[in-house]
Write a protein that binds this DNA or RNA. Structure first.
Lengths: 139, 139
DNA sequence: GTGCATCCTCAGGTAACATGAGGATCAAGC
DNA sequence: GCTTGATCCTCATGTTACCTGAGGATGCAC
């Protein structure tokens, strides 16, 4: 169980094969061994590291963020507080994103509603959505 | 006021100059005139079209979406209902995105909280965030 | 006429991979 | 021993929506 192929590593870490190679290219994986036939060989520590990267990516961190996180965790004494600070900073980013999404949804709902009232009844010769979108830039 | 430079067009439409050129390259603008000196010349219809594209992009539609929207609106009788359907479909996408963001925020908050309790007090020799992230893939 | 702003057309960069070409290797079945 | 299909390798290019910069022409103000 100590020597896994890239296919197995991908499956166990929740990545695609291409993504595993990509993370190695990006320097997020260190010291991946090679079998005599040239194929990559993975051990469990590599799988854990891949999962870590994958999960961070799923959480919305960039590759560079992950690099920093790994730097903090690779250090002799993992800088937990730095990691926490990055998490907190990212939460702030998420809140901004959610606010934007909420605003967009309101805009689109309003647009669709207007259309239902004015267009679907055949009352308007020109789709009001089109006018709404093109007339004035919001804000 | 009928012949605007690309700089003026950009300013009035809320795009950058590079973006205005890009939209033209993408075929979203049609029949942009040229002055004898080779510079692009824009009229108000172009500005409205640029605003339309810009606003759609702000609303999260892809360039291809916008192409479809413009196709619907360019038709002799704008297909308002098609436009509305795209808006509604996009609202669904936004709802999925928001659900994901909410989940991420919960995960990160939980992570940060755990860290505050276990790491910041110096109780844990290894940052629990690191373990949390790497141990098991969520789900 | 000097200088700075604006414009032009390429070409290449960005993020995070996905996809495909062209070829080697492995494992299974006959 | 041999065929076949799956997996692996590297390298190159595609994706999305632009941004940035090179190298050069033009416009406008003083």
């Amino acid at each position: 169980m100590a020597g896994m192929s890239i296919g197995q590593a991908a499956e166990r870490s929740g990545c695609t094969v291409a993504t595993v190679r990509h993370y190695e290219d990006e320097g997020l994986l260190k010291g991946i061994g090679r079998a005599p036939n040239g194929r990559r060989v993975y051990g469990w520590p590599d799988i854990h590291r891949l999962r870590f990267v994958r999960r961070c990516r799923d959480l919305g961190f960039s590759i560079n963020d992950v690099r920093s996180l790994l730097g903090a965790t690779d250090a002799s004494s993992p800088d937990c507080l730095a990691v926490r600070d990055m998490a907190v900073a990212h939460i702030d980013r998420l809140r901004v994103m959610r606010a934007e999404i909420d605003a967009l949804e309101r805009s689109l709902s309003s647009l669709a509603k207007t259309c239902n009232e004015a267009c679907a009844t055949g009352r308007s010769p020109v789709c009001t959505i089109v006018e709404d979108l093109g007339a004035t830039a919001s804000g």
